[in-house]
Simulated assay, not measured.
Amino acid sequence: MTGQPAPSAIDPVALTGDLIRCESVTPADAGALDTLQRVLEGLGFTCTRLPFSEEGTADVDNLYARLGAARPNLCFAGHTDVVPVGARGAWSADPFGAEIRDGLLYGRGAVDMKGAIACFAAAVGRFLAERGSDFGGSISMMITGDEEGVSINGTTKMVRWARETGEALDACVVGEPTNPRDLGDMVKIGRRGSINGTITVEGTQGHVAYPHLADNPAPRLVRLLAALDALTLDEGTEHFQPSNLEITDIRIGNDATNVIPATAAARFNIRFNDTWTGARLDAFLRETLDKAAAPDGTRYRLDTRVSGEAFLTEPGRLTEVVAGAIEDVTGRKPELSTTGGTSDARFIKDLCPVVEFGLISDTMHKVDERVRVTDLEQLTDVYTEILRRYFAG
């Protein structure tokens, strides 16, 4: 899309295509933010580019745009970066060509989540055409280029910038793909937390024929993992499923068949609900492993990293506005869910209540990622209705 479109003239399908044609594989931007900024400035937004850096990571550009100065400030958050396409030859269309075929728009990012960004921009244009610029508040967009990557120079630093500059958000809708089958199936009102752990058990290397001269760490590691695997962390809550621990990797790195290894290690991940915090879970894991290690004096080291805490946006006005808009447009009453992985909502929840609603998730990160053109139109209608309801009265 070029030029300065009139508020009512933004075509969400065309804008999605323009964004897809920017090969913004993390951490590259490839003009995606420039494309969006031109459209938003045409609507009257004030745009602030927020490039962030950190040693050992790639520089990332981000965009914060705001229309209006009054409160409340309803924010839409998302990301223009995408995952790699994989084997290009496996695609039936150019992954960055934005081809429309049989009512489907093909391209990396069509669902996750350039389509939702385009729909929200188009929705703002329609809303302004109805209400004008004096609608009783502000609309903002927080767009990162670092959601699919390490998430260091993106939303987490934009949230810090908002706090430091006094940029207040009152509510936020994240445009992640949330619907399993049909538009209107599901709204995410929270996310489980995630903690990664690595257990390393120390032993003494030796010859397998002389085990009394060595100390095999492999059986010791197995016993520690068995203690973790036997845990029942909780029974779940009203809004969350039970927390679960999954062992994801066991490695010794021993190519010899006649050598007892010196070390053995394993990795695991826990997706935890709001009965836990990362710190409490870390302490519980260490207590469990200490008990399992004590009888035979197993020497081990546990390293953990919390990538996100569990959070819940309690059902209230924001969820009512979003769910009501979805039901009004699609005829479906959405499930209020906390399933799935993590998203940048885990950072934004420190600023304001946040929910997630976007497109259908079945092709995200896949070969031939695609979205129905009719879904882009309908999602634009949903976002428009959210704006009407949020700023009603």
Rank of each mutant, 00 (worst) to 15 (best):
V322C: 14
M364Q: 15
R286A: 03
L312R: 01
V60Q: 01
W276H: 14
D282G: 06
P5N: 06
G145I: 08
V208T: 12
E130D: 12
L224D: 12
I117T: 11
A122P: 04
G341I: 04
D146I: 07
G132C: 09
Y106A: 03
T330W: 05
V367D: 05
V367G: 02
A226F: 04
S343V: 05
G44V: 03
D18S: 15
T313I: 02
R332S: 02
P242F: 00
G193H: 03
F52A: 10
D185K: 00
R220V: 14
F268M: 10
V208P: 13
M142S: 15
G393Y: 08
D303L: 00
F120G: 00
R271N: 03
D290R: 14
S92D: 06
F127V: 07
N73L: 12
A110S: 15
G154L: 02
L183S: 06
G193V: 00
G154V: 05
G166W: 08
E23I: 01
A168I: 12
R191W: 15
G308V: 01
E385T: 14
P27Q: 13
G78C: 09
V124Q: 03
P177E: 15
D146N: 10
R160K: 15
P72A: 06
R163K: 15
F311L: 07
P211H: 12
D170S: 03
R38Q: 09
A345P: 03
T26K: 02
G316V: 01
P353T: 00
D94N: 00
V150Y: 02
L40S: 02
G197M: 11
F391R: 02
F120Y: 08
A93W: 11
T380Q: 13
M364K: 10
F268N: 14
F284G: 06
I143D: 14
A162E: 09
G203S: 09
Q241W: 00
F127G: 13
D234H: 01
C22R: 06
F347A: 03
S138N: 11
E327T: 05
R126I: 01
F272C: 12
Y64A: 07
L318N: 08
L376I: 07
V82S: 10
A90E: 15
M1K: 11
L233I: 02
A110H: 09
A392W: 02
F135V: 12
G44Y: 06
D182C: 08
T2A: 11
T80E: 13
L379R: 13
D282N: 12
E369G: 01
Y300R: 04
S140W: 14
Y390Q: 10
I100L: 11
E356V: 04
P242C: 00
P211A: 12
L376G: 11
A392T: 04
D328I: 09
T178V: 03
L67Q: 03
V173T: 11
S243R: 01
A129Y: 12
Q378L: 08
F120I: 01
A227F: 15
M186E: 14
